[in-house]
Amino acid sequence: MYYTLTAITENTPGVLYRIASVFLQGQINIERLEVSAIDETRTRSRFRIEFFDTEQHAHLLARRMERLVEVEHVELTQEKDGGETPQNTDST
């Protein structure tokens, strides 16, 4: 299934790397990735990551990401296969 994961994180060096490590360890390929600082003080970032995964594994991945100290909030959304419109939202 196709998922979009949105994460709010600290805006510090290495966060992208740590998040990528979670994907690498799960051997999940990233189809699309957007990162940007989100507030005026540039202290926080938003990640938007799209990937294919099984349902159970995608949830595990989201929880493992939430475990990272720099990650404040994670939201996992299942998309229609490859599509852009969110189907159901599942906050982990």
Binding site: T12, G14, Y17, R18, L24, Q25, V69
Partner: peptide, 14 residues
Amino acid sequence: IISMAAPVTKWCAQ
């Protein structure tokens, strides 16, 4: 070392 330790630490920083 940060790159090497990141996946095996709870947290690391330079």
